[in-house]
Amino acid sequence: MIINNLKLIREKKKISQSELAALLEVSRQTINGIEKNKYNPSLQLALKIAYYLNTPLEDIFQWQ
């Protein structure tokens, strides 16, 4: 199972779901689904999230 800290990191950086979704060219619902662990992002999307949040990938997504 993958645990993610996306919501915590996104809120710490004061970025809304809508703003992050626009940067990543995905829907706000996609961001919401990832934050709620409804599904895991593709590797490409995970890397883009880490890039736009300027945060190491392993700080956002962790195996458990």
Rank of each mutant, 00 (worst) to 15 (best):
L24F: 03
Q17M: 09
N40R: 10
K48I: 05
E19C: 07
Q64Y: 09
Q62C: 07
E58S: 13
I60Q: 00
N5H: 08
A22Y: 10
N54K: 12
L45W: 04
R28K: 12
L57S: 04
I31F: 03
N5T: 04
L6H: 01
E19S: 10
E58T: 09
L43T: 08
Q17V: 14
Q17E: 06
K12F: 11
S18M: 13
N5W: 06
R28D: 12
I2K: 09
Y39S: 08
L24R: 01
F61L: 03
I34T: 02
R28F: 10
P41F: 04
N5P: 02
P41Y: 03
D59K: 11
E19P: 02
Y52P: 00
P56C: 05
I60N: 00
G33Y: 13
I34Y: 04
E11L: 13
R28S: 13
A46V: 05
L20E: 00
N5F: 06
S27W: 03
Q44M: 11
S42Q: 05
T55D: 03
I31H: 00
I9N: 04
N37D: 09
K38Y: 13
E25V: 08
I31K: 00
L43W: 13
Y52H: 12
E11G: 06
G33E: 15
N32G: 09
P56L: 04
Q44V: 13
T55V: 12
V26R: 04
E11C: 08
Q17C: 05
Q17D: 05
Y51L: 11
Q29E: 15
I9T: 07
Y52A: 13
Q62E: 10
D59W: 10
L20Q: 00
T30H: 09
A50K: 03
K13G: 05
W63G: 04
Q62P: 07
A46C: 07
N40T: 14
E25F: 10
S42Y: 05
N37I: 03
A46W: 05
L24I: 13
A46E: 02
N40K: 11
N40C: 10
N4Q: 04
Q44R: 11
L45D: 03
Q29P: 06
L23W: 15
N37Y: 07
L47E: 10
R10P: 01
T55Q: 07
S16W: 04
Y51G: 08
Q62R: 11
K38H: 15
N4T: 03
K48V: 05
L47C: 10
N32E: 15
L8R: 14
I49V: 06
Q29C: 10
L57P: 04
F61C: 02
S16R: 08
P41S: 03
L6V: 05
L57N: 02
K7M: 08
Q64N: 12
L57F: 06
Q29I: 11
I9A: 07
E58A: 10
L24K: 00
N37A: 07
E58R: 10
F61M: 03
K7D: 03
L8A: 15
K38E: 15
I2P: 07
L23F: 13
K7Y: 06
I2Q: 08
K36I: 13
S18T: 13
A21L: 02
K38V: 14
K7T: 10
T55A: 08
Q64T: 13
K48R: 14
L6Q: 03
Q29Y: 12
Q29F: 11
Y39T: 11
A21V: 03
E11K: 10
A50I: 03
I49G: 00
M1Y: 07
T55S: 09
I31P: 00
F61T: 01
L23P: 03
N54F: 06
I31S: 01
L43P: 10
A21M: 03
S18E: 15
T55L: 06
K36H: 15
Y39P: 03
R10Y: 02
L8H: 14
N37L: 06
P56R: 10
L47N: 11
K36E: 15
Y51K: 10
I9F: 10
A21C: 05
E11V: 12
E35V: 02
I3P: 05
N37E: 07
A22H: 13
I15P: 00
A46F: 03
D59L: 12
A46I: 04
Y52L: 11
N4L: 03
K48G: 07
I34H: 01
E19G: 11
I49Y: 01
D59M: 13
A50V: 05
L57I: 12
Q62H: 08
D59N: 10
L57A: 04
I9R: 04
N32S: 13
Q29V: 12
L24N: 03
E35K: 00
E58Q: 13
A46P: 00
K13H: 13
E25R: 15
L53Y: 01
Y39R: 10
L23G: 11
E19W: 07
E35H: 02
M1K: 06
A46Q: 06
N5L: 04
M1D: 05
N5C: 06
S42A: 06
L6D: 00
S42P: 11
D59H: 12
S16V: 04
K38N: 12
K13C: 08
L43N: 07
D59E: 14
L45F: 10
N5I: 03
Y39M: 09
S27F: 03
E58L: 10
M1C: 07
L6E: 01
Q64V: 11
K48N: 07
E35Q: 02
K36L: 14
A21S: 08
N37P: 01
W63D: 03
T30G: 03
V26E: 05
Y39H: 11
E58Y: 11
N32D: 15
K13S: 10
L20M: 07
L8M: 14
A50C: 06
L47T: 11
N54C: 09
G33F: 13
N32K: 15
N32I: 15
L8W: 10
S18G: 15
A22W: 07
Y39N: 08
T30M: 12
S27C: 05
T55Y: 07
V26K: 03
L45C: 05
T30F: 13
S18P: 07
T30K: 09
A46T: 04
S16P: 07
Q64H: 11
L20T: 01
Q44G: 13
N4E: 01
K13D: 04
Q17G: 05
A46D: 00
N40I: 14
S16E: 06
L23E: 09
E19N: 10
N4V: 03
Q64F: 09
K36Y: 08
Q62A: 10
E19H: 13
M1P: 12
I15S: 03
D59T: 08
Q17S: 06
Q29A: 14
K7H: 06
Y51D: 08
L53C: 03
N32V: 15
K38M: 14
A21D: 02
I34S: 00
L53M: 07
I49F: 05
S16A: 07
L43G: 06
N37F: 07
Q44E: 14
S27K: 08
L23M: 15
Q62G: 09
Y51E: 09
A46H: 01
